[in-house]
Structures are given as C-alpha cells and as structure tokens.
Design a protein around this nucleic acid. Structure first.
Length: 370
DNA sequence: TCTACTATCACATTTGAACTGA
DNA sequence: ATCAGTTCAAATGTGATAGTAG
C-alpha cells in the first residue's frame, strides 16, 4: 500500500488485517531519508561507493528518520543491499556502460542497527545513522560487512520489524523501505571525477589528503612508500590489533552518537523520477528532481521467513512469486526478459520482487563496526 | 595493452581513557 | 562518591596512486 504525501515522506503501511489479540496493528510507519540533498547531489552524478577487502564505510552514509511506530513496542531496524539490476558495468569514456550480466550474487547479509532492539520512542526521537556499516568485496569476510560485487549497482533497503530481541526478528512482519536516490555503483577505485570531488568537498576524512601529503602540483610525496621495515611494522600492528569491527563494538543498548553533520534535513525538495533507478547506464540528463512528490519505491511488506503472513495478507501475483522465490530460492538468476516482464504494475520498485528471487538467503547477521 | 584490484601513504577526525574540579 | 567537563594519545577513515594480477 503506497501513499503519496505532500511532505515528501515515504509512507508505507501494512495490508490491514483484522486486529486480534496476537497481531499488532501496524499502523502507518513513515521513513524519511536524511541528508537527501546530499544524496541527490551524488545521485545526479552517479553515486559510487568504494569497497575494499577490509570494508569501507559508505559516503554519504545512510541516515533515516522513522515515525508512526507503535508506542511502547520494541523494534529492530535492519538494512541490506539489493542489486539495482542484473548488469555489470564499466566506466568508459566518462560514463558508465553495461559490461554484461551481473555475477552471481554474493552471500546476502543484513546489518542490524546497533541500537536494536529499542522502543519506538528511541527510534523516533532522532535520526538513525548507519554510519558504521561497511561494504566489502571479500566474499570470505569474517567481520560481518555487507558483501557486494564491484562494478555492480545496489541500493540500500531498510527493514523495520517489531521484536524484543534480535533472536525473535524472524517471527515478526517486516516493513521495508528504500530510496531511489541511494542507488550506487560499487567500485574499488573511483571512476567518476565528479564523485571524487563531491566526496572531498563533503567528507571531512578526505581533508588529510587534500590539504596535506600532497605537493602543490597535486602529486603526493611517496619517498618511503612500501619500505620493508615500515611494512613489517604495519603488519605487526595488524597482527597485534584485534579487528576494528570487534575492537569497539558498542553494546546493543548503547546509543549511537550522531555526528554534527547528521542533522535532519528538509526533504521537501526531494523527489525522484522512477526512472532514476533503472537498468540503463546513468545519464545525467535523465535526472529530474523537480517533481513535487516523491515516488514511493517500495510497497510490499517484507516477510522472508514467516510463511503464515502470506496467507494473512493477500498478495499480488508478482508478490506471490517473489515470496515463493524467497522461500524456495531459484537455482538460476532471472533472464533479462524475465526480469523486465515482472516490472509492471503500480509499484515503484518492482526490483523488490524480481530481485528478491536473486537473494538466495537472508541470514540475520548483526554487526557493528567502527 | 587494458582493466580491475590491492596495499600503502599522511593527516584530519573520532573515540575513549585518564584526569581534574565541583 | 559521583558527575561533568577537559585533555590527549591512539585508532580510524579518507582519496590517490603505484604495483600487481588476470
């Protein structure tokens, strides 16, 4: 059920079911993307996210605001990455172009917000920051980072569910949200200089390279790069230090500090064409943020585990297929034709259904890292 | 030769322990 | 004894780039 709102918020509500003693009335949960203007800036140039073997934070990082939660109820908020399409890309002649079909999806991981579970009042009093979430291309990663393929496109997806502990998550109905402007291309090195400039302009951590360590002509001094003794020292440090993700892992009850740059932003200017999330290479001319209403990207409650929920809520035929594929993962990916054939109807994120089948597993993997 | 990935660099920022004073 | 504020060292994250692999 999608609701367009004048305040450019994303409203999704669960299909209504008769209120019973056991079932919670879901109401109408609303999720707003913070720093939407920044996301739009990046999206207009084709957002790229660096991924490394040891995990790299996102920039911009995901920050959302929740409202409409049931008072006095505990919720768990999670996030995962969904392939935006079924293609692999490459950067050629200052633009992205399709370089073939996507590779088999890496193991899917869910990032649980470190505050989870927490009461509704906690979630709604301030924006939720997913700053600590990291992306990696290491399929053997042991730190719980979200695994993505380089040169593939993804978008973050947020799940909200009632649960009193992380271990009861799968028994609650999910509500799923996503935002088209958060779609990005995973890369191991920046391709688009526009993105590099945007990141340097907005990311304080990049200052170290911009203002120091470089010569006036922009080349950095690398006289001692890779010296054997320095390398040995570094390797020794790596051996001695525990993994960063485990070193300062906050407890689940610890609140996340919200940085000074994480103030809520007015989303009134946020609106996106549905076409901004598609399978074609990014074309800057196609982006149009002048619409007054924000498209609602997702509409189906996400219930990967609870088959009973499917019976409770009548599903669109596509949804049934998607739900079926979630419970019974396909052995192969959808062909492009099959993929496209499922992208119809009034849903703004049909990928949720066609792509859902691409995700062969939904392990609950809670982690946080510094 | 080309493309993608990895390791490494210096420094600003963040974090948290230690300390001080009310 | 407790709390709040300050200080400071260590940890962390960042983009650029050379080297490597396929």
């Amino acid at each position: 059920m999608c609701i367009f709102s004048k305040d450019s918020k994303l409203h999704l509500s669960m299909p209504q079911s008769p209120p019973t003693a056991e079932s919670y009335q879901q109401g109408c949960i609303s999720m707003t993307l913070e720093k939407a203007d920044l996301w739009k800036s990046f999206h207009s140039s084709g957002t790229e996210m660096i991924i490394t073997k040891h995990g790299r934070r996102m920039f911009p990082h995901c920050s959302i605001r929740l409202s409409g939660l049931q008072p006095f109820v505990n919720y768990v908020v999670m996030m995962d990455m969904v392939p935006a399409d079924s293609f692999k890309y490459r950067w050629k002649k200052d633009q992205w172009e399709v370089a073939g079909k996507s590779e088999p999806q890496p193991p899917c991981r869910l990032y649980m917000h470190p505050d989870s579970p927490a009461p509704a009042s906690h979630w709604m009093k301030q924006p939720l920051s997913f700053l600590r979430m990291k992306l990696t291309n290491n399929t053997l990663d042991q730190h719980g980072h979200i695994i993505v393929h380089s040169m593939h496109r993804y978008y973050p997806r947020f799940h909200v569910t009632q649960a009193d502990s992380p271990y009861t998550v799968r028994w609650g109905p999910f509500q799923t949200f996503s935002f088209p402007e958060t779609t990005f291309t995973a890369v191991t090195a920046y391709q688009n200089p526009k993105i590099t400039k945007l990141k340097i302009d907005h990311n304080p951590f990049a200052k170290g390279f911009r203002e120091g360590g470089t010569h006036s002509h922009g080349k950095r001094c690398r006289s001692n790069r890779g010296s054997p003794d320095k390398r040995a020292r570094l390797e020794s440090e790596v051996r001695c230090n525990s993994p960063p993700g485990l070193q300062r892992m906050p407890s689940t009850s610890q609140s996340v500090k919200v940085g000074k740059d994480e103030q809520p932003l007015n989303l009134s200017a946020c609106s996106l064409e549905q076409e901004s999330l598609h399978t074609e290479p990014l074309d800057l001319q196609e982006y149009d943020y002048c619409c007054e209403e924000q498209m609602v990207p997702a509409s189906m409650p996400y219930q990967p585990y609870r088959s009973l929920e499917y019976a409770r809520y009548p599903l669109h035929s596509n949804e049934v297929d998607a739900a079926h594929s979630l419970l019974h993962p396909p052995h192969h990916q959808l062909s492009t034709a099959e993929h496209n054939s499922q992208q119809h109807g009034y849903y703004h994120h049909p990928q949720h259904y066609s792509q859902a089948g691409d995700w062969s597993q939904y392990p609950l993997f809670s982690y946080s890292c510094r």
